[in-house]
Design a protein around this nucleic acid. Structure first.
Length: 978
DNA sequence: GTCCGACCGTA
DNA sequence: TTACGGTCGGACG
């Protein structure tokens, strides 16, 4: 936000009550749902968004947000437990409208902001401050006197019902004091509605007069004894404390940790279809037509949105007539933006709890599922899904690899227990004999997909899947996109990272108390294993439809927890948008040169064979060199070499560390074993394995990125793992030369320099480290210089090496023991180093102690973007377990914040490249590095864009106090590009 | 056939 | 001292 920008802040909660009382009563939808306040609200938003210039405000907003009260409990209740205590429950026909107004806000695609523990007014105050500091102007859409304290030259208020702007003169006219004195005025007068005590008998007139005379509340209370009127004097002296308390109650907080930065409040163009589908559902015909005209939307092409209404009655538990648990509403919002469904007395936590209980108590009957065998029935199911507005979807295929998988069928479920499987290419017979022809009564694949595509791509129907990325890759290969979507695996990951797995089987067990049918139970195992198209259709239906049913139930159980736990933004901004990005990267794959690998493999084989002969010679016998057990027996048993150590299972350790020690003492054999291990490792894990992954059609290697595999938020890569391709040794690096660009293209590697240390400097707030990064110093040398009082330029190399080890140690949750092992020094010396480090950088100790305490208090730690990582064993009685969890908890915010930053860069990257009309494709992510393939002629421009996106990736959500630096290079292969 | 530990490749 | 995944040998059924 900058000078000249204009922020509109709508006091959503205030508006609801105002509209309810100020508008014609009882506007109802055809089904009886009261929507008067919603109607007024929508009309107001519409007016402000398209024609604010024509109102008394007279300006067009550049930024816009709607602010709500989160719940009635706030920090003010801690100041004064009677605050707002005599508020009565809202009128019955207003209750369902609370959620609808949030839905309306989202339909307008406006930020809908609420924070636990704060009133809307505090958020508004905070945003006013931020906007003013940024040089912008603000208009608060409200006429609430509680907000008048905020009026200033850059902040005005606007009463939408009277089309009246409120500035300083209006405040003085109404209250007799300028905005700056409103706090003191309210402290004296109190507020019977909010139960702010004030001074009894002092009303606005008297208060204004007193403030006029004494200037402010403090002066007035100080000199209260001089008040001439006896009664007034006595009452003010007697109630001075109440006045002071009242002042704290009415003073708005301007330091609320608001989730959205100003820049995220930028007003976007209207999404016509989305808004219209909501307005249609609300039956606001006049406004619907106006919106259609203005946004050039074809009214007929837009369906009605599905809107869930949480009524107050639901909060009261079982149905009073039957005693049965009330059926949960079978509708949910079709806006993935989501909302709490919250009404007074019914918090997001209440809804989440209710849903979890509902899930745990439901029974799953796999025999009730339907097999769809004809197009007409499929059409009916699709129509039903459209009506309901969401559908759980799952594919069944011939392979776990989505790039090879052939679609066997798919399942749908829009209502718990009501699920169907659509078989497409199932075979009759086992397939072993007679080849197994196509089983009868299956819809032709093309016909079925032509019917399915409009559903999967329908913007008003939410598709719900477990691990959607898999299905997305498969469906993309059949020419179908899937959006919008929710992913139960990712929801679980955001909620419960660190508490266990997020696969459907474990989630079903955890939340539904249900054991799902296992794939191996239907497809067999080992030699008898078949692909899914050979599973008999009735058995396939049970298995596949159950998956969709379970997915839907998990979604119902877990989705509300995102709001209750305050992690909606993590899910919506860091998790969900990455799914299509990764799906594309996986589909693109990377080109790996088979000949290069084959040549290296041959050389490795020769060298290894030569070493083997020498090893047998030295050992005096042939043995399995790759067997640590046999090797240990030879080295420490037969040859009686010294200095052996044991692993935790009592075996001799033959780790590199042990072998290197022996080699240093002059033994020949251990050296050769180390070399042999390196060669065979490279051969078996890389040069021999990688070619097996070259796709027969694309001729490229397609890894799979797991989004929900780590506790910290990092991705992982498998089949093949392209995040552990060798780089440290020259022999290993040769493997990277096999990763190449297509002719006419280059590979670009862009990596964050020292991102974790930079984040440590930011998070722990270490001025010396920040300074070093700002000035582009060698960070490890600078650390050494700071620790030992040296000149940065003159740090000896091995002192620098030690400082580097300590720096990494800090990030990993250092211990004297670990550092000693690493540096090969005594525990005491290592302890001294750590102490010296902490003394030089006291912020580090604070960070470590603070993080451990938070982890113990809450069982989780979080990244700078609010991603949580749970450490449920942080309080284990076993000191080793506890210490391990503490170190992991210290590491997680740093590693996780870095992971979040590169995720943000990846999410933005494709758009940024497209905007510059660049043909670059993002192929791989290796934790702090992104690999692209780009047309040769566009390399320089691509690097420019890539660096900009990566370096600014934390913004605007988090403004780092340390610059991020990205190094990027282009070459024909990965080795030279890195 | 399946599981686990040791080892080792990456950030 | 953090976070992963793959390969191997060896034990178990």
């Amino acid at each position: 936000m900058k000078k000249g920008d204009h922020l509109f802040l709508v006091d959503g909660s205030g508006y609801i009550f105002r509209a309810y009382h100020g508008l014609p009563p009882l506007t109802r939808k055809s089904d009886g749902l009261p929507v008067g306040a919603v109607a007024g609200f929508c009309n107001m938003l519409w007016k402000l968004m398209v024609s604010a210039r024509d109102t008394e405000v007279g300006v067009t907003p550049s930024h816009f947000a709607v602010i709500f009260d989160y719940s009635s409990k706030t920090f003010r209740n801690e100041l004064y437990d009677q605050y707002k205590a005599n508020r009565s429950a809202p009128p019955e026909d207003l209750v369902p409208q609370f959620g609808l107004i949030r839905d309306a806000t989202r339909a307008f695609e406006l930020p809908c902001i609420e924070i636990e523990g704060f009133e809307a007014d505090d958020l508004i105050a905070t945003y006013c401050r931020l906007a003013t500091e940024a040089g912008g102007d603000t208009t608060i859409i409200s006429s609430d006197k509680d907000l008048m304290q905020l009026v200033s030259p850059s902040v005005s208020m606007y009463d939408p019902m009277k089309d009246r702007e409120i500035r300083e003169p209006e405040v003085i006219e109404k209250w007799g004091v300028p905005p700056a004195k409103m706090i003191d005025l309210q402290a004296l007068t109190g507020d019977s509605i909010d139960n702010v005590p004030g001074v009894p008998g002092i009303g606005p007139k008297t208060a204004a007069q007193l403030l006029e005379e004494y200037g402010d509340l403090d002066t007035l209370l100080e000199r209260a004894g001089k008040i001439k009127q006896q009664k007034r004097r006595e009452v003010i002296i007697a109630n001075a404390d109440k006045a002071r308390l009242s002042r704290e109650l009415v003073r708005l907080r301007t330091d609320v940790p608001v989730p959205e930065t100003l820049d995220e409040l930028v007003l976007h163009p209207l999404n016509g279809p989305k808004l219209i589908s909501f307005l249609k559902a609300m039956e606001f015909t006049a406004l619907t037509r106006r919106v259609a005209d203005k946004t050039d939307t074809d009214l007929a092409s837009v369906g009605k949105a599905k809107v869930e209404v949480e009524t107050g009655a639901e909060a009261h538990g079982p149905d009073l007539d039957t005693g049965e648990p009330r059926p949960a509403p079978d509708k949910d919002t079709s806006f993935p933006g989501d909302r709490a469904g919250k009404v007074e007395g019914k918090t997001p936590q209440d809804l989440a709890n209710k849903r979890i209980e509902e899930a745990a108590n439901s029974k799953i009957d796999t025999s009730a599922y339907v097999t769809i065998r004809d197009a007409d029935t499929l059409k009916e199911w699709i129509e039903r899904a459209k009506d309901i507005g969401y559908v759980a979807f799952d594919t069944e295929t011939t392979s776990l690899d989505p790039m090879q998988a052939e679609l066997c069928g798919f399942s749908l479920c829009s209502e718990p227990g009501v699920a169907a499987y659509v078989p497409l290419i199932h075979k009759s017979g086992t397939g072993d004999l007679l080849g197994g022809g196509l089983a009868p009564d299956q819809i032709d694949t093309r016909t079925a997909l032509d019917l399915l595509k409009p559903l999967l791509e329908d913007p008003s129907v939410l598709k719900i899947a477990q691990n959607l990325k898999y299905d997305l890759v498969v469906m993309n290969r059949y020419g179908i996109d899937v959006r919008p979507f929710d992913d139960t695996m990712l929801i679980s990951y955001v909620l419960d990272a660190g508490k266990g797995g997020h696969g459907m089987d474990v989630l079903a067990e955890r939340w539904l108390g249900h054991r799902t049918i296992q794939f191996k139970d239907v497809a067999g195992t080992g030699k008898a294993k078949t692909t899914f198209d050979y599973v008999p259709i009735d058995r396939a239906t049970e298995y596949a439809a159950e998956d969709a049913d379970v997915t839907l139930r998990l979604w119902r159980a877990l989705k509300p927890r995102l709001v209750a736990d305050g992690v909606v933004a993590v899910y919506e901004r860091l998790e969900r948008p990455l799914v299509p990005v990764l799906a594309q990267m996986e589909q693109r794959g990377i080109s790996v040169d088979r000949q290069t690998l084959s040549r290296i493999s041959g050389e490795l084989a020769q060298k290894a064979a030569a070493l083997e002969d020498e090893i047998y010679e030295l050992a005096g016998e042939k043995f399995s060199i790759g067997s640590p057990k046999q090797l240990g027996d030879i080295l420490f048993g037969r040859m009686m070499l010294p200095g052996g150590s044991k692993t935790k299972t009592g075996q001799w350790s033959t780790s590199v560390f042990v072998l290197e020690e022996l080699a240093a003492e002059g033994h020949e054999l251990p050296r050769k074993i180390v070399d042999w291990r390196q060669l065979t490792k490279l051969k078996s894990t890389y040069t021999d394995a990688l070619p097996e992954y070259i796709h027969p059609e694309t001729k490229r290697v397609h890894t799979s990125f797991a989004l929900a595999a780590t506790t910290t938020g990092r991705l992982s890569s498998s089949e093949p793992n392209l995040q552990n391709i060798p780089i440290r040794t020259s022999e290993g690096r040769r493997i990277r030369t096999a990763f190449v660009a297509e002719p006419g293209n280059k590979l670009i590697s862009a990596d964050y320099s020292q991102i974790e240390l930079r984040l440590l400097a930011h998070i722990a707030d270490i001025p010396e480290l920040k300074h070093a990064f700002e000035n582009g110093l060698d960070i490890h040398a600078a650390t050494a210089a700071e620790m030992f009082g040296l000149d940065v330029e003159k740090v000896p190399t091995d002192v620098r090496r030690q400082a580097k080890t300590i720096n990494f140690g800090i990030i990993y949750g250092i211990s004297a023991f670990g550092l000693a092992t690493r540096l090969g020094i005594s525990r005491e010396e290592a302890g001294d180093y750590i102490k010296r480090y902490f003394d030089r950088f006291p912020g580090i100790r604070n960070y470590i102690e603070g993080t451990k305490k938070r982890a113990r208090d809450r069982l989780y730690v979080e990244t700078i973007f609010g991603r949580r990582a749970y450490y449920p064993e942080i309080k284990a009685s076993n000191p080793q377990t506890r210490a391990f969890n503490e170190r992991a908890a210290i590491n997680a915010p740093i590693q996780g914040s870095a992971a979040d930053i590169i995720r943000r860069a990846m999410i933005r990257m494709d758009d940024a490249l497209k905007q510059e009309k660049l043909g670059a494709r993002m192929l791989l992510q290796v934790h702090d590095e992104l690999i692209f393939e780009a047309p040769e002629k566009e390399v320089d421009e691509t690097i420019r864009i890539v660096r900009a996106v990566m370096e600014d990736a934390a913004m605007p959500a988090v403004s780092l106090s340390v610059p991020l630096q990205v190094d990027a290079r282009a070459a024909d292969n990965w080795d030279e590009a890195h």
